[in-house]
Design a protein around this nucleic acid. Sequence first.
DNA 1: TTTTATTGATTGAACGTTCAATAAAAAAAT
DNA 2: ATTTTTTTATTGAACGTTCAATCAATAAAA
Lengths: 195, 195
Amino acid sequence: MEPIRRQQLIEATMTAIDEVGLHDATVIRIARRAGVSAGIISHYFGGKDGLLEATMRQILRDLNDAIAARRRALANDSPKARLQAIIDGNFDRSQVTGPAAKTWLAFWASSMHKPALARLQYINDRRLYSNLRHHFRRAMPAPEAEQAARGMAAMIDGLWLRGALTREGLDATEARQVANAHLDQLFAQIEEAFL
Amino acid sequence: MEPIRRQQLIEATMTAIDEVGLHDATVIRIARRAGVSAGIISHYFGGKDGLLEATMRQILRDLNDAIAARRRALANDSPKARLQAIIDGNFDRSQVTGPAAKTWLAFWASSMHKPALARLQYINDRRLYSNLRHHFRRAMPAPEAEQAARGMAAMIDGLWLRGALTREGLDATEARQVANAHLDQLFAQIEEAFL
DNA sequence: TTTTATTGATTGAACGTTCAATAAAAAAAT
DNA sequence: ATTTTTTTATTGAACGTTCAATCAATAAAA
């Protein structure tokens, strides 16, 4: 029963946050969404905070899985192909649906004052930046690679943030297009520097 | 008295949100910060929501003032110079201090489910995008200009978001450097296309 | 004296958590 | 195979807390 209930409650949490925001996503509302009673949340997650943390972990896991899948599907492992896989993974379907997107943004804001969430947030931020820098580093000098990684990380998060705020949600195709155009520019500039 | 109290309470709101987050920024906490009693908030702002909306308006006004000031200080009005003014204005001092940055991010998340804040948010987003597109449009064809504007807007917001989440706060100098490097690339590519 | 500004105790609503009671399932005993 | 016992899963009312808003009382200013 436990794994089933946990999954149901995590999904209900995302749905509730998508519908009414983190502040109004009460335990009763979440429990009703999942078709159970409020008390069960404390039973399986120790309390509301435990459920919220588990929900954020789920979202981060989904994101990493999406990126890993794209990497595995790669024919070559050129720096540019690897970077494209990271970009595409970040705009993977599981990440851009309303519930996941709004839940993530809610956690982003919340993590500023909740150490447990801040830790998860920090690890994920660093991983995105480190991965980007590592692959840029194979194609350009270190200072340029670091700047490129910072810019690309910001653009990905920014596209994602702006998408979460629009009524229609994020257009993943368009977001990929913008980010990949930027990637093309960075690599076009490298080739030019070698001529 | 009214303008003084309003200003005090708005500043106290940002400080409180910076310290404990939007959720725990209660009227009593804000009032104590401002050195007044809780009841005065309803008296001057009609309630807590009114105070929050006024605080967001203040932040957006400060941002627009910063951008306008940079534009006025401009020697020439070339597209690139105008775009640089927008970038610099977005990382102006008043925007990158802890209180303003965290308050803004808190409102960003909150605006997903509060129509009053969403309206302010939407207007500001559109203005940034429209301004960027307008100036890019003077230097490149429309489709490219739109894509460049989307990418630049995302990068600005992303740098800003990532800065708000780091413990040390946003490094404005570094953020400007990254955004301006991207701008240089966009313009370098234009010149190349004309050769 | 009249108007304006401010207080802070009170009120009612809503929240998360707890826990005794109960239902369902599994195991053991007959 | 049937009954009894034990364990596991779940409920929802009750509890204590916290919040924003209210408003009669008071102080200050005009």
